[in-house]
């Protein structure tokens, strides 16, 4: 029998890292910083989680460490792109490569094994069998919408992504806001890492979820809630195939077909057939104070 309740829960869990990752992307890109380094931040976060949790015997420390690890890289991304005006994609790629090497190096130094850590038993509590962090991303998306539309911080962050020169002329400290956006992106990447698989770190275990997050973000048209919903569409389609043996009309459909459905949909959307996505106007633009 197909247990719909269980299906909904598992889908929520599967979607969690991509949903948090998509939110991470939204914060950074709203401030005008293209962040393809989410993959690397998430990967670093997964290692830091296990490290912190084992060292302090507490899952809360694990989450804090995951955030710390991801934020350190996000600050690096900020320094490169905001202060030193490096091309955002170049910096992001460099950080992704750095994260792969860094996590392996640290694992070797700390645990004596290059490609995996010991199993960690200090994991976030389970609620109905899934990671408790998997229940918060929709609320967080709604909160983000409120921040972007109703708070001074959010409005200014958006102005820095849309028209940094205008914001600058009105006295907004554009650099500071861009840094804030990137750092918040790191915080969310840390949460993405904590919701992925806190039981152990394995080399490159994020397996492309950071890039998937960006796809979800673009699919969701840079809107926090839509980005999270897009991530959930990906996650639920993935989960659906695990249950395909029990759903009569899916039994004979190849599972790869079910799995690829949301991506095909995303392609159709991104190709402009179902409306148009619009990134922040100055997304990826190098901002130099005083120029226009």
């Amino acid at each position: 029998m197909f247990n719909i309740w269980y299906f909904l829960l598992r889908g929520l869990q599967t979607s969690a890292p991509v949903a948090y990752g998509a939110l991470a992307g939204v914060y950074s890109e709203t401030g005008g910083i293209v962040n393809i380094a989410i993959e690397g931040m998430m990967l670093t976060g997964t290692f830091f989680f296990v490290w912190g949790a084992i060292a302090f015997k507490s899952w809360i420390m694990g989450v804090l460490f995951a955030i710390l690890g991801a934020v350190l890289l996000s600050i690096l991304h900020g320094i490169a792109t905001i202060t030193f005006k490096v091309n955002h994609v170049v910096s992001g790629t460099a950080i992704n490569l750095l994260a792969m090497g860094l996590t392996r190096f640290m694992s070797m130094q700390i645990f004596g094994m290059e490609t995996q850590t010991p199993v960690n038993s200090y994991i976030p509590p389970r609620l109905f069998g899934i990671n408790i962090l998997a229940y918060f991303y929709i609320a967080l998306a709604l909160l983000t919408i409120w921040i972007f539309r109703r708070t001074r911080f959010g409005l200014r962050l958006r102005s820095c992504g849309e028209n940094p020169w205008g914001a600058d002329s009105l006295g907004v400290n554009v650099y500071a806001y861009k840094y804030a956006g990137v750092i918040l992106s790191g915080v969310l990447a840390g949460l993405a890492a904590s919701s992925l698989y806190p039981n152990q770190w394995i080399a490159e275990m994020t397996a492309g979820r950071g890039y998937l997050s960006l796809a979800a973000m673009i699919f969701g048209n840079y809107n926090p809630l839509n980005a999270v919903l897009a991530a959930m569409l990906f996650g639920y389609a993935e989960t659906l195939r695990y249950f395909s043996a029990q759903i009569p009309f899916l039994v004979n459909v190849p599972s790869t077909l079910i799995q690829s459905f949301p991506y095909v949909l995303a392609l159709v959307v991104l190709a402009g057939f179902l409306g148009k996505t619009r990134p922040p106007k100055a997304d990826g633009v190098i901002f130099e104070k005083g120029e226009d």
Binding site: N3, P17, Q200, I202, A207, T239
Partner: peptide, 18 residues
Amino acid sequence: AFKDPAKGKEIASTFYNQ
């Protein structure tokens, strides 16, 4: 697919649940 424990766990969990 050979280094994705999160997905391995998801799939196996649904199998055990079923």
